[in-house]
Design a protein around this nucleic acid. Structure first.
Lengths: 225, 225
DNA sequence: CCAAAAGTGTTGGCGTTACACCCATGG
DNA sequence: CCATGGGTGTAACGCCAACACTTTTGG
């Protein structure tokens, strides 16, 4: 049995929501091919680490962040997607709170930046396709899960929760209905600290409940009977 | 930049529904490691083919089938998942109609067979994990899509459609409600042939409608407002 | 006292579930 | 004529969408 050897890479689609916009982390390529163009952060998988470990390593190298939400997105492996040779890339989707979304100190200022995810600049390789798919996936999950909560730093207010859902869904939501629904999921737990912001009433704050720490799956809509 | 070379494989989870049971195609390994144990069909990706092409090639080699529904499932790449060395495998999920689900002629009778997908025999490598995830994914998609229709050979009857949904969802469905809903999706188109089976009234038959040929996504349930 | 965001309930409409009998055929 | 699966309608209920004003604070 033949076992051709290929290169395996991971690429990261790191999202954050800032100023009512969905943003993605991009890096400027310093080497050929596509030198000077924007691309997704990523790199080759070493022989001793798992795929997710490689993705987390790359994420830490660019942002210094650890312990954020990460999930595998899709694997691309067209023979000619990389002009250097055959590279199969496993793409990961990561969510980071805007308050933590800083490019790593010490990097060149022009080296990496968060940019609009829905109208990104011209990207290297097939990265535009990867970003588009990640945006679609995140939007879908916003419809039926609490995944978007990972875009917020705890503790957060209900208005902040509503903002991220509105950005991901691309439409405005009714405040009263939204609050009733998100609280009914029993995925949030109230903290005892209030957020004092400006010249207005302070807001209650919440964190992910310990019993429902992560994503929440609900029944589908086609056959609920 | 270092570019370690790894082996990349594809593995196939080929489902069919027969006798009110979800079944998966397994092959008996003829070589070490895990010689004699059941495993998923699959093989290494050659340097010139895409991942999906490799998956379709393996599927054709085992079953002779072409043009069936196939989608990428997930990629596994733990360093020690294969004792021979570092192998990253991209798993694909395929759906074949029971009427076409034959192991390729000329194969050893004991070489490959469809077996219960929810209680499979002991499997080689991490294939039990892969099968479990595929079963879960198929069940989820049955909740909100018409994907299960690809488990049927056209033309099919509404009773056959209901049967595959019941098997995937693991519960019985109400006949009148089911028919109203599945027809309301506008994904089926009636043919002019009737199915005459036995000592009972003949059934109307349907095929996937040309305008809704494939999977159908519906709105989520969390924020439909 | 004014601006700004937080917080809070009710009702009408629609979609979903529950449910039982007649039809067409082959033997 | 009987057994077998195919085919069909309605009514009660529950859930969801729509909708506007009061509260609390800072300046």
């Amino acid at each position: 049995m033949k076992r051709p050897e290929l290169s395996v890479a991971v690429d990261l689609v790191v999202f954050t929501v800032r100023a009512h916009t969905l943003e993605v982390l991009l890096v400027r390529r310093g080497i050929q091919p596509y030198r000077g163009q924007w691309a997704l952060p990523g790199g080759f998988v070493t022989t001793q680490e798992s795929l997710e470990a490689a993705a987390r390593r790359e994420l830490a190298e660019e942002t210094g962040l650890k312990g954020v939400y990460i999930e595998q997105l899709y694997t691309w492996g067209e023979p000619k997607r990389d002009p250097r040779g055959r590279v199969v890339t496993v793409a990961y989707l990561a969510l980071v709170p805007a308050a933590r979304a800083r490019v790593k100190a010490g990097s060149d200022a022009a080296h990496a930046a968060f940019q609009p995810a829905r109208q990104p600049p011209r990207l290297a390789f097939d990265h535009a396709v990867i970003v588009a798919r990640a945006v679609e996936r995140l939007g879908t999950k916003a419809e039926y899960s609490t995944l978007p909560l990972h875009l917020l730093k705890e503790p957060f207010t209900l208005s902040e929760v509503q903002e991220v859902y509105e950005v991901l869904l691309g439409r405005d939501l009714d405040k009263r209905n939204f609050r009733r629904k998100i609280l009914a999921l029993d995925a949030l737990e109230e903290t005892d600290v209030m957020r004092r912001d400006g010249a207005h009433r302070p807001a209650r704050t919440f964190r992910l409940s310990a019993s429902r720490p992560y994503l929440l799956k609900e029944r589908g809509i086609l056959f609920p009977f």
